[in-house]
Design a protein around this nucleic acid. Structure first.
Lengths: 163, 163
DNA sequence: GCCATATACTTCAGTAGTGAGATACTTGAC
DNA sequence: GTCAAGTATCTCACTACTGAAGTATATGGC
């Protein structure tokens, strides 16, 4: 006597949200795979690349600022900047206003590296997105911006533990 | 003498694709954070949950089928099914047609667990997506479906190594 | 000034994977 | 039947983190 597969929810709000979750996750994974391929071939992980890219486009940043921008843990940002520092792409600098804090900034070697590979990366992203025309991409940006902003603003789901 | 921050690309196809990449990644991360919170409180990782959910809605599946569905490596699916098997939520079963292959299927305990937590998870997703109305969600599904399908179909980017 | 609390970063043990190679079996050509 | 090539799973060394606790400094109330 085997257990029957359960049907998926059919009420429209839940069914639609679940479908959106699936296509959002899969499309993000598919695009990220292209982005990653364009970067690992240069000996960087996608997260290391994200740090170099942030410093390249914003200039020196406090470690905490970088951490929030690339969405890693506090331990993660120390670990990642250590790795990039050992390879000579990034260095730490003191912050005069707050002696707890440290800036991360590109070395000339790091700047040269990211200046060389960023255009390749940008082209890989453009190509990965080419399934959608420019107008559709703008439409998607508007929808996802709203979706993301509201999801980030939403507190944790009301739990059954708290009455 | 410091290095100036570099400007972002401004040609519309590249600039738009990069923006879309950012909002796609951030919105996916924001939604996934809600999905994950609804699942870790039950002692499962999101990937373990995905396996139980797949078996719950599709019935027994070959390990390779589950692997492709949840997008993990070959080593990953063995590791994950091992963990779920040790906790008594899943068991392996022989495949009569192909003696290399193994089915994964829910135990009664696993079925009871996923039947209990899936509705909570579905509700968390519905809530996380509530920044968008139903019509906008459908629009987003259509756009992301196209985007993901085309990105998956795209081969690796032409490398500078191959002429 | 002194203290409690908050913040910025680091350390470190642990976790959830990846990916290459190994094993076992299947399939089709001959 | 036999073999080569292909496929399904497993093993294992390795990696990229996470998150909690620790250290150093900052900030505001008194």
């Amino acid at each position: 006597m085997s257990i029957e597969p359960a049907p998926l929810p059919t009420d429209p709000p839940t069914a639609t949200a679940l479908k959106l979750f699936v296509v959002l996750s899969r499309s993000q994974a598919a695009i990220a795979a292209h982005a990653e391929a364009s970067v690992v071939s240069h000996g960087l992980t996608i997260t290391e690349f994200a740090i170099l890219e942030a410093l390249y486009h914003k200039g020196p940043m406090l470690l905490g600022e970088v951490q929030r921008k690339i969405l890693v843990s506090s331990g993660g940002i120390t670990f990642l900047v250590d790795k990039l520092e050992k390879r000579g792409f990034v260095r730490r600098a003191l912050c005069e206003r707050d002696r707890r804090a440290r800036y991360a900034e590109l070395t000339p070697e790091g700047h040269a590296l990211i200046a060389r590979i960023f255009p390749v990366h940008a082209e890989a992203i453009r190509r990965a997105m080419s399934g959608l025309g420019l107008a559709d991409q703008r439409e998607a940006i508007a929808l996802l911006r709203t979706l993301g902003r509201e999801a980030e603003a939403l507190g944790p789901a009301p739990s059954s533990i708290e009455g």
